[in-house]
Design a protein around this nucleic acid. Sequence first.
DNA 1: CGACTCTTTGAATTTTGTCAAACTGAGTGG
DNA 2: CCACTCAGTTTGACAAAATTCAAAGAGTCG
Lengths: 248, 248
Amino acid sequence: MAASASHDNAPLIVKLESFLALSAEERGALETLPMQVQALTADQDIVRQGDRPVRSCLILSGYAATYQTTGAGKRQIQAFHMPGDIPDLQSLHLKVLDNSLATITPCRVGFITHDVLLDLCRRHPRLNDAFWRETLVDGAIFRTWVTNNGQREALGRLAHILCEWITRLRAVGLADGLTCELPMTQAELADALGVSTVHVNRVLQELRAKDLVTLKGSVLTVLDWEALKRIADFDPAYLHLDGDRAAF
Amino acid sequence: MAASASHDNAPLIVKLESFLALSAEERGALETLPMQVQALTADQDIVRQGDRPVRSCLILSGYAATYQTTGAGKRQIQAFHMPGDIPDLQSLHLKVLDNSLATITPCRVGFITHDVLLDLCRRHPRLNDAFWRETLVDGAIFRTWVTNNGQREALGRLAHILCEWITRLRAVGLADGLTCELPMTQAELADALGVSTVHVNRVLQELRAKDLVTLKGSVLTVLDWEALKRIADFDPAYLHLDGDRAAF
DNA sequence: CGACTCTTTGAATTTTGTCAAACTGAGTGG
DNA sequence: CCACTCAGTTTGACAAAATTCAAAGAGTCG
């Protein structure tokens, strides 16, 4: 049940090390972080709006999404998550969750109690700052989604989210050149972009017709990165990938 | 030039005390926080996208906005700020700014260097957590804007931002019942909501026609809070106003 | 008063949504 | 191995929401 294998949270350590040289103690503390590992199927809620969780969730493998539901029954996806992410880290200091978190593919996740995290932050101030920083990058991504969904038409909007997705995957070593997994359905992309499913389909075909991307099954390949970036008006600065993995 | 008057950063202390009982030392540290106070005119940039600031900005009086500009020359306002806010607190841990910050009315602001803030966080772990929490609430607001702008039509969208605005003002004691200042122009609201100025005007008139609000000059009065809340589908949970000031 | 910016209005256009149905492809069970 | 199912994708026609453009009022401040 309880586990603390170093290979399990490797994606998190990779992420932290990209902007912070971990000391032996810091690395050791992270590698032996007690967490409860659990295997989840696709389309399963992990935590829900209104919950008061006592632990946060580290994604070890698979993909997930943060979402909110409106009174009218519509769903907005606010973020997509990948291995190494802690999608509900904010619950460490915000008691009541204002959004839900669900898997979009089968996932292995590690639950780490807030007690453990707070203790880790107290003992290792640089890890405190690193976790804080992680939540700040999340905030920067939310901000950019506001801009993306507010100011760009559907075509640029979709292109932007594709640019962001592959860039983030590359940063944790999960993309192969200009090819990566794209686990979300068109309906999920629609709920993230604030457009209808039908319209996502139309603009996706426009991207294909312009020979910018291919998307077969759940495999995305970018055929012309510079052109896609231009249409998306994509500037990766907001992802704050200070390290070597920033460059394309 | 350098100042540290207790009345200056009172709004910040009010905000922190709403969810944290400050000790004498913590309060003292905050009240004597060395900051450089500056008076700014309206529509003036405070910091810009791409900057690498060595200080953050506490709003003492007046109103400001965070924004991003797209390659197509469009502007998305990502947040409105009021006294007590530290709109660029994230620059404490994110080196390069991914957005700009500008006044929308004349403002008095206090600049606090990152050195000073980091030292304060080191000496007072509870203040570290409180500042972290502040940035998490900012993140929750960004998320909710994604939902608001993505899933609601213009009428609900405008209603929602009005509900949020007056609720936040009440929380820092800057609203008088259901009346408050609304310093932004319709063009600024448009850039925040991701709609055209003309359309903001039209839906605003719809809110007036339904006798939900009045807006004369820059004074907003909510005539029917429950009805406005319903149209906005507004649930203030995401503002995380744990204290007494949460209730309407 | 005059020079602003900000708000308001109307008409034509564009983008996007809705609805309904057909198609595709990956399992599943007979 | 072949229907069958089911989720996901694609298509077309029509409707609704919002944009654009252009111009006219209203307020505010020197």
